[in-house]
Design a protein around this nucleic acid. Structure first.
Lengths: 244, 244
DNA sequence: CGCCAACTTGATGGCTGTCAAGTCAGGTGG
DNA sequence: CCACCTGACTTGACAGCCATCAAGTTGGCG
């Protein structure tokens, strides 16, 4: 009861975090999770609109999102940019920095957020000790690669409405995994950011939302989305169009 | 001279491989590279058109390309597919399989090829022993993620000619790194495969090649490409078009 | 109450997909 | 050695999807 447990320690313990079913500790046993506790020294708050890191920043840590919502984006010299992902609680960002020791994208908070700072050198060190952690970390990176390939498929071969349907279904599924409604949620990003992610202009995104609403698949009220016909959305995503 | 060195051993030693400046041993010291030798037990030949692995196959190994050229592709149930990359000598494929213990894409040889088989469990085991190997493997995965983000940028925000210019410049650079001509090479893939990778139809790819030739940037003779104006290609890639 | 960013909706145009016909190169068999 | 065949490629004509430009609406916030 009176054990010398500091507030800071409580605050940063993976073993007591309510995200442990989603975050790095996924699938680890109780004592293994406890070994992770020493991985996370600090937490950081990032206000909406602020960057957690930017392209070119020195890379030192990965970040596990504890609360909030981020987007990552890459840019070219000539001003073009592309949203490469939207990340929510329990997801890990910053892996892009390992290869060059500098970050290769920007991570921007889309709402007031909080992240666990995971010093990368510490993660490598613990990975050498704990096989399960090592394997889990490799899985996280592999999953990101597979996810990226899925986005390529979307960008390379789907039409506007198919892309948006896929996007909504993906969000829905991820909200479900976090215990939120799968059919009723608030978008944290603008039409323009959705468009950038999907390779579309904001007007096209807006039109597709309206179309889905007219077709009775969803109802849209600005950022508030309610999905009324999941099967219908899946059908939109699946239809190849004209080619037989 | 008469040391009992088996042919098999010679054949699979990273420490004597002429790709060691490109492959897993990149940046490792001599004795560290030697520790990799036990990582690679076998080599495999894959004939042109054959698959090294397919979606759904059990995952057990990564593959380092020793000779040849591959494409990887993902597909949806409804028949759509997308080439996610072209891999050449010294590059590592199969990472997509870690997350689910099953491969998540197909890897098809575009010419008669040879790969080193790297048992994944062995790689994890050695990674726990050798910090440098661990870090290097993480870098390989991180690089793949960063590369994928670049492809997303290409697919999401570039026009047909910009995409093809970027593609040619990327190939050129990778050939250079392997000691081949940067301006004169044979494409191993068809127009359709290039199109799939770039999110374009084969006719559009063909037209863009012809346009580049008319503009004096390259000369095209079926699969034989000669780049005559690298700077010109870079300019094509850089031009944002109309938006200012 | 007014301002502004975000969003919606309409009109128009262009890039690229689609369909079609023809060319080229390499390999096979007579 | 030549004719033929096939897959890959090129080129043209046309159409459709989505970008662009423009105007108006909504909702949040000072």
């Amino acid at each position: 009861m009176n054990a010398p447990v500091t507030l800071a320690h409580i605050k940063t313990a993976c073993s007591t975090c309510n995200l442990r079913e989603l975050c790095l500790p996924v699938g680890l046993k109780r004592d293994e999770v406890e070994s992770l506790d020493e991985l996370v020294y600090t937490r950081m708050k990032v206000k909406r609109g602020e960057s957690l890191f930017r392209t070119g920043d020195d890379f030192a840590s990965l970040y596990a999102i504890r609360v909030g919502f981020f987007k990552t984006r890459v840019a070219t010299e000539d001003g073009r940019d592309q949203v490469t992902g939207f990340q929510m609680a329990g997801e890990l960002i910053g892996i892009d920095g390992i290869v060059t020791d500098h970050h290769n994208c920007d991570a921007v908070a889309l709402e007031d957020s909080e992240v666990c700072v995971i010093p990368y050198s510490k993660l490598e060190e613990l990975s050498r000790k704990f096989e399960v952690l090592q394997h889990h970390f490799h899985k996280v990176m592999s999953r990101e690669i597979v996810r990226d390939h899925g986005v390529m498929l979307l960008l390379g071969s789907m039409r506007a409405e198919e892309r948006l349907a896929a996007f909504l279904l993906n969000l829905s599924q991820r909200f479900t995994a976090r215990g939120y409604s799968s059919s009723d949620f608030i978008l944290r990003m603008t039409r323009e950011e959705i468009g950038s992610y999907l390779g579309l202009k904001l007007e096209t995104v807006s039109r597709a939302f309206s179309k889905f609403q007219d077709d009775g698949l969803i109802s849209v009220q600005q950022k508030h989305i309610r999905i009324s016909d999941i099967a219908g959305l899946k059908k939109v995503m699946g239809q190849t169009g004209s080619t037989c």
